[in-house]
Structures are given as C-alpha cells and as structure tokens.
C-alpha cells in the first residue's frame, strides 16, 4: 500500500499539469475554434522564464509571477499580429500557429542554446509521515495546480467575464447584437489561455528538464485530453486529462514509457473516433 501512494501522487501531479495545459488550449479552441499548435511552446517559454530568473538571481516566486505575465503578453502580441487575421479560417490557424511554434522553438535555441537546463527546487525537503515520504515541492505543485484549475473554473462559471465568454462561445452573433464585443472577448480569452500555459510551464520547471523541444510532449496529450473529454463543458478537460495522463503514467510505471505512450495515443484515438463529441459531450470541431 505504501508503495502505491507515491505512484498515485506522481500520476495525479502529472494529470494536474496536463489539465492546466489543456485548459489553456481548450479556452482558445472552445471559444474561437482556433487550434493553437504553439501552445506547447508557450508552456516551454514559461519554463524558460524560470531558467532566466534563476540565472539572474531572482527569487523563485518572482519567476512564478513573471512567467504568466511575460507569456500572456506574448499571447497578446500573437493574437494581434497573427490570430486576428485568420479567425475565420480555422484550419489555417493550425498551420500558422505551427509556423509560430517552429519560430519560437528556434528563438529559444538561439537565446538559451539547444541543451537542457534545470531549475533548482525552491523547497528541498520531503513530507515524512511514518514510512511514507514525498518531496514537498511536488505537493506544493499539486496544491497550486488545483487552485489554478479551480480558479479558472470559477472565472468561467461564476463571474461576469465567464458569462460573457460562454455567451460568445454559444452564439457569437447573438452576443454581438447584445452589445458584446466578441473580438475583445476572443483576445482576452487567448491571453488567459497563454498565461495559463506560461504559469504551468513555470510551476513544473523544477521537476523536469527544461529544453526547447519539451512543448510537443505536452501539446499532443493536451489536445488528446480535450478531444477525449469533449470540447464543450470545462469538466471534459478533467476527465480527458485523467484518462490520458492516468493511463500514460500508470503504464509507464508498470510496462515501459514507450508502450505507455503508444497505448495511450491509440486509446485516445479510439475514444475520439468512436465518440467524437467526447466522453462528457459538447460540440464537435467546426
């Protein structure tokens, strides 16, 4: 039993990070029908903000605060310079953001080099409870992720911003004829989605190796989580993230990482094919 608990905690923390990444993707996809292939790179840049902060001797918390601000601002630039011009061509957004992801990746290679970096843990200790011991930072990471996910849900279900956002998702034309500036909603949702990615990258930076190629490893599972869970209700991301992240991690422990990845992708593809509206329902892609 006591061997099982760390595994469950590891799996849970992976799922939570995946859900954070997927939430940002889903806000952008659900709201604008835009597939942001550069989302993984925004996550990666969030992690690199931590690397830069460490190199500059800034405290850990400063990096955590700076990452979503910098990445969110980058999101604002991307929306204004790129996405805004192709809202009405959803398939082209895939290609354009793909080009963006290549450019961002290379920009990071040019600035930080192609090698991987590590970020020091801000807290070193472990939580000891009898025979049970678990790194403290991972617990903090989980708590922070839960707070963030909860906060995002709260924003979209309990606030005026959320009401407006859901209205724009459901009936953009009707929302506009009620005086709601849909373009402005798109813009800020995009910024929120990218800032979330940046923050997720920053939070997870101390427990992974930070390198320019790390984005893809989160982008594809993130998307599969959305499609598996269903792109309609927000809760779909939780279910999708649990399925994709859970299966992936458990199989990686019990069989091998390669078998796990192959199995989880195939399971996800099967679910998406057999239930295109996702486990939790919702609309299909445009």
């Amino acid at each position: 039993m006591s061997e099982l608990i760390p595994i469950i905690l590891d799996v849970s923390s992976y799922i939570l990070i995946l859900v954070l990444v997927a939430l940002g993707l889903m806000i952008v996809f659900g709201m604008m029908g835009v597939i942001n292939m550069a989302h993984g790179e925004l996550f990666m840049i969030g992690a690199y903000v931590m690397v830069a902060a460490q190199n500059l001797g800034l405290p850990f918390l400063a990096g955590i605060i700076l990452a979503p601000i910098i990445v969110g601002f980058l999101g604002l630039l991307i929306e204004a310079a790129l996405i805004r011009h192709i809202y009405l061509r959803p398939l082209d957004t895939i290609l354009a953001t793909w080009g963006l992801s290549i450019a961002l990746k290379q920009l990071v290679v040019l600035t930080f080099g192609p090698e991987s970096h590590s970020v020091a843990l801000p807290v070193d200790g472990s939580l000891e409870l009898g025979a049970f011991s678990y790194p403290l930072y991972r617990l903090i990471l989980m708590a922070a992720s839960i707070l963030l996910i909860g906060g995002t849900f709260w924003l979209f279900t309990r606030t005026d911003f959320g009401l407006l956002a859901r209205a724009v998702i459901a009936r953009p034309n009707t929302a506009a004829s009620l005086g709601i500036d849909t373009r402005r909603m798109y813009r800020w949702s995009f910024v929120i989605g990218t800032a979330l990615a940046g923050l997720a990258g920053a939070l997870v930076a101390p427990i992974i190796s930070v390198d320019p190629q790390m984005g893809l490893g989160y982008l594809v599972p993130g998307f599969l989580s959305i499609l598996v869970g269903g792109a309609g209700p927000l809760a779909g991301v939780l279910v999708g993230g649990a399925v994709v992240g859970g299966v992936n991690n458990l199989l990686a422990v019990w069989i091998s990482p390669v078998a796990a990845l192959i199995t989880v992708y195939i399971i996800a593809i099967l679910i998406i094919r057999l239930k295109p509206e996702g486990i939790m329902g919702g609309r299909r892609a445009k």
Binding site: I94, Y265, R284, A285, K286
Partner: peptide, 26 residues
C-alpha cells in the same frame, strides 16, 4: 460512418505519426 474531419483529423494523424515513430525507434 460519422467520419472525422478538419482539426480533429489533423491532431489524430499527428498522434499517429508520433506513435509510428516511437514504434520504429523501439
């Protein structure tokens, strides 16, 4: 049947390519 198209197809074919690459690597 209720086939897959558009963005979903892009993601699924991308995932398939990743699966095959992993498979051949091992």
């Amino acid at each position: 049947g209720r086939g897959i198209s558009g963005a979903y197809l892009a993601i699924i074919t991308l995932a398939m390519a990743l699966v095959l690459e992993r498979l051949m690597n091992n």
